[in-house]
Design a protein around this nucleic acid. Sequence first.
DNA 1: GGTGCTATGACAATCGGTTGCCATAGATAG
DNA 2: CTATCTATGGCAACCGATTGTCATAGCACC
Lengths: 355, 355
Amino acid sequence: MSDDSDAEPQRSVPTRRRSPGGAPTIYDIAELTGVNPSTVSRALGKPGRVSAKTEAKIRAAAAQLNFRVNPMARALPTGRTHTLALIVADITNPLFFRLVRGAELAATGAGYALVIAESQESGDAEADVIEQIMPSVDGIVLATTRLSPERIAEIASRKPLVVVNREVVGVTAVVPGVERGTQALVSHLYEMGHRSIAYLSGPVTSWMSERRWTIILEAAEALGIAAVEIGPASPTLSGGREALRRVIASRATAVVAFNDLMAMGLMQAAAEAAVVVPDELSVAGFDDIFGSELISPALTTVRAPLVEMGQRAVVGVLAAVSSEDDAVSEDMPALTTELIVRGSTGHAPGGPFSS
Amino acid sequence: MSDDSDAEPQRSVPTRRRSPGGAPTIYDIAELTGVNPSTVSRALGKPGRVSAKTEAKIRAAAAQLNFRVNPMARALPTGRTHTLALIVADITNPLFFRLVRGAELAATGAGYALVIAESQESGDAEADVIEQIMPSVDGIVLATTRLSPERIAEIASRKPLVVVNREVVGVTAVVPGVERGTQALVSHLYEMGHRSIAYLSGPVTSWMSERRWTIILEAAEALGIAAVEIGPASPTLSGGREALRRVIASRATAVVAFNDLMAMGLMQAAAEAAVVVPDELSVAGFDDIFGSELISPALTTVRAPLVEMGQRAVVGVLAAVSSEDDAVSEDMPALTTELIVRGSTGHAPGGPFSS
DNA sequence: GGTGCTATGACAATCGGTTGCCATAGATAG
DNA sequence: CTATCTATGGCAACCGATTGTCATAGCACC
């Protein structure tokens, strides 16, 4: 790399740049049109700042050269990278498909690129990832975070940040109203004759797991039925699998899992243990991820508007990016959740309708 | 950042830098240690270029300031952005979960960020996305592409590029050996008594769809059984769904879909049409995505090592990035595919074992 | 015709690192 | 004791865009 082989003196081109595979720059355009580079910059970036005639000439030249502004060069003086980060705990969780799609849609729609990073490990690993990616992005979306509220607030003080499925004081959040769907779910179970519900919770650090449990508990209390929390457990298929024993032991006739993945794991384990769903045990989950209607019986779940959530998170970050300092006011219609009844929930065993 | 109490927006600050929330720079370190910024740059970047003593001093100061090199500033002179792009056609395809994970793993492991872009639309949209993202990345991984070979080769001539599940002359490719798993699949079907197989193909632009069909055709010929191609169809659930009628009409006793998503769609449609899988129709797919073992009956499929493929693709790009020009020699052990037999394939109807 | 205004484009500094080249100090050799 | 060499650090020119400031041309108006 050090030796610059100049064995080809014929090669030397008298012109300025453009020699290597390098992309055309505003200097090339300037030279071609006979104006100053700064004028090119303004023509392309500040509408109305240069005369229409000059602008047209410059645009024509830019098109001819197939010019693309160098994002790195632009980022240096402006501090704007036109890139957003999306941090997730586990990319392979189907939950993220639609979330990512929404985010990607909104980002590219606004001319931003989306970098995705996974923080599989502990909160420390997540903090590291964020720390590393911070300088090269304009804002961050934290989809599933294991960080403490303080840490999140601290990050939010340095960069525009939006958290998804979590609330932290002083930080913009995208959280669908879980009450509606969750209450509908508990009512549904009640109507099917269930009088004892188990909630299989996710990680202790999951704000949303706690929130769902709270609502279920309140709904159960209001209906005068029993509710127990089981967990915490890993928010994965195996997390659900391993919890079956404790669920059975609880004698609840219905179990609501923190998310669909866990509910599916529960159903797999139930099938292996010859526990018939929903005849002997009703199972429900949250989010309505891919696979929920594939599994047999299809999973009853509380659907979250994941695509919209991804979009909103990005929109929120972009709003904070553009309007420097003012607190982002949220006045969009609230997102809400919806109960999707499928085959995994049925009449409580021993009830009037049970066989 | 602990005691930066002076948050008052002083208009013109004649002082040096460090005024805004700006991150520490090598100039700060230089000032702190009394050396030249260039020395700081070398101490941090070129091992052995500065004396051990000076380097230690500089590293200490950098740590104290919590210094992070500004990727944008570094990218400008070097042209290295330390970012890679992964382009996929449809983020919501479960196929990508594991692929992305592998890619992300390899990328962050090498200190690179991964930007993910979706090219939902036509090849033109994909070309646009690539064109836009090109200047800000060091290399590109094309996971599912609808681009023509010429276009791909042209892009490869401008940036390090690796294509996945496709072969293009002169371009590094990551393609698992499909023969093994596919031949095993056809043999499996043969042994189950099937003498007529239908292949439901994916998009016409899919190289891999064509490749799979070729191998199935050859295997069928070798075994002396019938094989027909049906399609093309969209590589999605609904693509599979809509194809059921044609599959039935073909009178084939087994159908192999281009991918698992289509196979699942086929199974859903079959269930709705009261066609029993596998008793009346055997169904198989490719890739072994999430959901394949969830669906009932569980899907027989040819598993692809997706995580490894993602990793290799990134490793391949990085190799091309570092070793400027030499042709990347591939000498890693070949990736291969594996038949996973589950419940969706069974004995051919009318055969000796059928009911 | 002179004055003042606006529109327009040029100049140059700057963002934060990187790197070729040079100066010098100290070491080593002759 | 001088000549040569090497290790080390400084200087300054970039990379490609943005933007504050300034000069001037053209124009209107009185």
